[in-house]
Computed example of a mutant assay.
Amino acid sequence: RADPTNLLIISPTGGGKTYLACAIGIAACHTEHSVHYTRMDDLARQLVIARGDGIGHQNMLNKLSDVDLLIIDDFLTVGIDPNAASDLFSILANRDHRLPTIIVSQSGPAYWVEALPDRIAADSTVNRLASQARTLNLGEVDMRRLRSDQAKTTKGYWE
């Protein structure tokens, strides 16, 4: 809890974003921090479903607001329901300057503002995530394709 700085890990598909985020999450676990990893599409679906149970919904928001490290993978890879976007804003606002969040995405903050359904909330959400964040841009290398190409050159490879 010493450093509440957010981390944005950005690169195209296959760049190693998820691998790196999970390694950071595992390291946090080894130092006895609580970690919650989720893909954005799963989180959005869970938030929408949880709205049917007021107490369960609030408990979920509280849990995500208070976990030592929140990792959201595939951030805004697909569209998001306005209610889930509102919940996401609430979670990130509660974590702001208090607890770190890692965002893993193929796109950057400029796209996120456009992708979120409410422009005013989008600006505030993205500002909370990105204004004081560290950004790791992993470049353009597709590690999956590179490993596949390397495997094809090894002795004994067959398709």
Rank of each mutant, 00 (worst) to 15 (best):
T18F: 00
L136Q: 08
T38S: 02
H97V: 12
H33N: 12
E114R: 06
L138T: 07
R147A: 15
S86Q: 11
S107T: 12
A133N: 02
Q106A: 10
E32M: 14
D66Y: 08
A44S: 06
L99H: 02
D41I: 12
A110G: 07
I71W: 00
W112Y: 05
A23M: 04
Y37T: 11
P4R: 03
D53M: 04
I120M: 13
R98E: 09
K63F: 08
G156M: 09
T77Y: 14
I55K: 07
R134A: 13
C29P: 03
I80N: 04
L8G: 07
A23R: 03
S148R: 14
A130W: 09
V35I: 10
L20Q: 02
G52I: 00
R95H: 02
S90A: 15
D142G: 10
A133Y: 05
Q150N: 13
L47P: 01
A110P: 05
K17R: 06
R98A: 10
I120A: 15
D118N: 13
S65V: 09
I91G: 02
T31W: 08
I26T: 13
S90F: 13
H36T: 15
P100K: 03
I80A: 04
L138G: 09
S65G: 10
C22E: 05
N94A: 13
L99G: 02
I9C: 01
L47R: 00
Y157K: 11
I102L: 00
H36W: 13
G15F: 04
R98F: 09
R45N: 08
A21R: 03
Q150V: 12
P12M: 14
G14T: 05
Y19K: 10
R144C: 08
A50S: 06
M143W: 12
G15I: 05
H36M: 13
H33G: 09
D96A: 12
G139F: 02
A28H: 05
T153F: 11
T135V: 14
D66R: 13
